[in-house]
Design a protein around this nucleic acid. Structure first.
Lengths: 328, 328
DNA sequence: GTGGCTGGCTTGCGCGCGCTAGCGCCGCCC
DNA sequence: GGGCGGCGCTAGCGCGCGCAAGCCAGCCAC
């Protein structure tokens, strides 16, 4: 049906022949090559023929010729955060697409033995949500990738920067609610270490700013959460700042099972506004992220690394906001 | 430090020069080209030089020359199922890597205006979890992809096939628990339509087999779930088969809020064994998927489409099992 | 001795595209 | 009238690799 099955692909040469110009001209038109002047008539005829024949530039050939793939690889952590990311990622890929780049995401393999995509795709930029450990970083460089974000050697590019207001919002919300005895519940997952530690540090700093004592940090998991919740109750803890909504749900669930009243005895606040925060009973107060803003921020960050366009400033784009629900 | 910064990439020609053979010989060695005999000595010297120089074949050049990218694109639905998928995907990418293919995943854009990856990556195979709608299917074909899974014109390849035992397990578990008045709670998300409808059909068939009447289907969302749950209570419904764990959680949460006792008055069973099923209070009985088995199945499916290797039979690989928790 | 054959290699083309060097033409200015 | 510069285009190389064709030495059969 749809076109002869074994049809050869349409190349720039086909267009050139069709229009009656050289192949170079077609290339100049398609790329709007700077420094080349093409008459409007020729340009239109080339575009028309391209559309008519269904021309699609061969990406591999382009990559080979120009030495850049125009692929940006986003490395996501393999943890629920993934979901909250997907919205931003979608936004980012729109922006990047407009700039002629493709966004490919991969989930960081847990000791998976498959060759990572930065080897096989040879992206122009590899961007991670978390800091890469040194081995991974070297591995990416060895694969020929020159632009890596975040790059420890340049303090500028920080994917996590715009989210740094989140922990502040969490803590201030609880303090405003009159809570005084806060603890921080974090994930024990080592893969998230750089994220969890940075969020914790920000939360702890906010607590200190408000002269609300110190903020103890506890790694929470399904096994120890019941015990922790009881201990907190004994110690007079009245609010939990959770690293994300999953941790918040875990804590909230355990508290309920132990007969602790939420939020009267214990307030809990999550982060990311993941679906679970809305579905959970009771529903969980959380920090909502600005998808579009974050997406644009990521895209700008990647583009600046890819072609030296100006780097975005963290403050400009994304706005975080509080979504107050039943746990506070 | 790590190598001179602006170093040119190592090509097969460099190796040839180093070893003192022609470039073609290097190519034959690297690809173990069938029909070409290379002496063991030469072969070893080529491999040694390749390792010594840090040779990495240029993927774009390979793709250009052989006309195939060895990329397999997996299109995931943009819905929580994503999480339960990630384990299988990881498995699949290991298997595919061994076969020399790279697995790239993308999330199906909700009207996103970025060009989809099947255009820009030009994968050898595009594989979806759900059936593609006709427009998308045509779009993928137009991008030059010949192998698409599932392909409506060939009934063989069905990614969802191995999971077809899930709804059966759900229903039989509830019947064994003595429940007689079941309803099916599904997602209203149109993107999941082909999945939800197939799971529902299987559940309904199982109910019919056991002479347990008919299985009404209800699309559930946060707005209508409270009302639905009340109605079910009035109508004597004693068990809910949920499309997945999120739906199950939604139903369970609504029931609790309405004072319905779980599982005494109403049993709920989910599907996928997503994290929420464990975290939720009460924890949710669900169908656990076999990550490794499913991963291998997907990989085989993709490989069979890529190079005509034998297609896997759905029965062979993956095993589903029941994870019984508090909601039944 | 000669022809055929096979193992082990080389020569060289083509994949589709980007882009530099250059060429002819026209209009402008002195 | 001649020089000159810019516009609009073409010829052709190179990106790195796969692979068809061919070439040569050595060996065996006759």
């Amino acid at each position: 049906m749809s076109g002869s099955p074994a049809t050869r692909r349409v190349t720039a040469a086909d267009i050139a022949r069709e229009v009656g110009v050289s192949r170079a001209t077609v290339g100049f038109v398609m790329n709007a090559t700077p420094g080349q002047t093409i008459s409007a008539g020729t340009r239109d005829r080339v575009f028309a023929a391209a559309r008519r024949l269904g021309y699609r530039p061969h990406l591999a050939a382009q990559a080979l010729a120009r030495g850049r793939t125009r692929i940006i690889l986003l490395v996501l952590p393999d943890w629920p955060m993934e979901y909250s990311m997907s919205r931003h990622v979608d936004e980012a890929s729109n922006f990047l697409d407009e700039a002629g780049y493709s966004l490919v995401t991969m989930t960081s393999h847990r000791g998976g033995n498959a060759r990572p995509l930065w080897e096989t795709l040879q992206p122009d930029v590899v961007m991670g949500m978390l800091h890469f450990d040194q081995d991974t970083f070297d591995d990416i460089r060895a694969a020929g990738v020159t632009a890596i974000i975040p790059d420890p050697s340049s303090a500028a590019a920080e994917p996590e920067a715009p989210v740094s207001a989140g922990p502040r919002l969490q803590v201030e919300h609880l303090l405003e609610r009159g809570r005084r005895n806060l603890v921080y519940a974090t994930s024990a997952d080592p893969r998230l270490e750089s994220l969890t530690s940075s969020r914790y540090a920000l939360a702890a700093a906010t607590v200190a700013e408000h002269d609300a004592g110190v903020l103890p940090e506890h790694a929470v998991n399904p096994e120890n959460v019941a015990e922790l919740v009881l201990r907190w109750a004994r110690e007079g803890v009245d609010a939990v700042v959770a690293y994300n909504d999953d941790i918040a749900a875990l804590v909230t669930g355990a508290a309920i099972r132990q007969g602790i009243e939420i939020p009267r005895q214990l307030a809990v606040i999550g982060h990311d506004d993941a679906p679970i925060s809305r579905i959970f009973v009771p529903s969980i107060t959380t920090v909502h992220l600005d998808d579009v803003g974050l997406g644009r921020y990521f895209a700008d960050l990647a583009l600046s690394a890819a072609n030296g366009s100006p780097a975005p400033n963290a403050e400009s784009s994304p706005q975080l906001s509080l979504t107050v629900r039943e746990t506070t």
